[in-house]
């Protein structure tokens, strides 16, 4: 799939944003001391900013962004529509919790619990947009929501200033990434779609079947959007960067350095860089079955 900057930024930023909002909401329930005043303003503000930036980025992916409101209509069937609702719900539910804590009058723990869970659910719903697609076998797997959740929790925990505690989700995320890369590599083959099933020319072919000539020598939307070939070496390097920067290094930093703004900032920047690498790969390495028709694979 085409690693479009709009969707990469959208998923990374909104994931981190809702992770942060979610953990800020859940924090008290988890036993973290709620921050207040300026710190709260900055933290909640950052969460909203990230989620908002992600949303704005996602707008760039739309052909007709001015009609975006219509996306609320199909929540009963569409994960994308559900995501719209979830986003609004998360932003709305977090608002009083945020406001209250900024004003130094924290709401009952239950309120944060609810808003936090909605935020994390939002991330899962976003993941489901991808995980639901049978056409992209690499995505059509539980590891996708797990990864999205992992990133949200790790990013959220780092940004929320959980300090060394954030190393835990980070390490889990690292393991998950490695697992997801592994599993992902076999998904397309396991899904069973081949040029033979795509064309039905399998039985007749017996031997070889390949794309002889594309329908057009010119390019088209499908080829740009769904067919992206990543060099193996390039992919391996980026995978390493994703795991190291996105999980291992932040965990080390958070565990090793004294908790504080410096460690948090360093870990956060590394994590976001890793997340971007992972997300680029998430799209670029995902093969759509339509590529079969074009002989891509």
């Amino acid at each position: 799939m085409h690693p479009a900057p709009s969707v990469i930024l959208f998923t990374v930023l909104s994931g981190a944003g809702f992770g942060l909002l979610g953990l800020l909401g859940l924090g008290p329930a988890l036993g973290a001391a709620p921050s207040g005043g300026l710190a709260a303003l900055l933290l909640w503000g950052l969460g909203y900013a990230l989620a908002g930036a992600g949303l704005i980025a996602s707008g760039f992916h739309l052909g007709r962004p001015e009609r975006a409101l219509r996306a609320f209509s199909q929540w009963r069937s569409s994960w994308l529509s559900r995501e719209a609702w979830a986003t609004v719900a998360a932003l709305l539910a977090s608002a009083p919790v945020a406001l209250a804590s900024i004003l130094g009058r924290p709401l009952p723990v239950a309120a944060g619990l609810v808003s936090g869970l909605i935020c994390l659910a939002t991330v899962l719903v976003t993941a489901m947009i991808y995980a639901q697609l049978k056409t992209v076998p690499r995505w059509h797997h539980w590891t996708v929501p797990a990864l999205f959740a992992g990133f949200a929790l790790t990013g959220g925990a780092i940004l929320a200033g959980f300090g060394p505690f954030a190393a835990l989700p980070a390490l889990a995320l690292g393991a998950l990434m490695i697992l997801a890369f592994r599993i992902g590599d076999g998904r397309f083959a396991a899904a069973g779609s081949t040029l033979a099933t795509a064309t039905g020319l399998g039985p007749a072919a017996g031997g070889g079947l390949r794309s002889f000539a594309p329908p057009h020598t010119g390019s088209n939307y499908l080829m740009r959007e769904m067919i992206h070939v990543v060099g193996r070496r390039h992919a391996r390097r980026l995978r390493r960067i994703a795991v190291l920067a996105g999980a291992v290094l932040p965990a080390l930093i958070l565990a090793a350095l004294p908790a504080g703004i410096l460690a948090t900032a360093l870990a956060a920047i590394l994590h976001l860089a890793g997340a971007l690498a992972q997300r680029w790969l998430f799209f670029a390495e995902a093969e759509h079955v339509v590529g079969l028709y074009y002989g891509a694979r």
Partner: peptide
């Protein structure tokens, strides 16, 4: 809205 998701969901391009 031109989100493109339906094209992603279609196996047949």
């Amino acid at each position: 809205i031109g989100c493109g998701l339906c094209a992603w969901a279609c196996p047949y391009g």
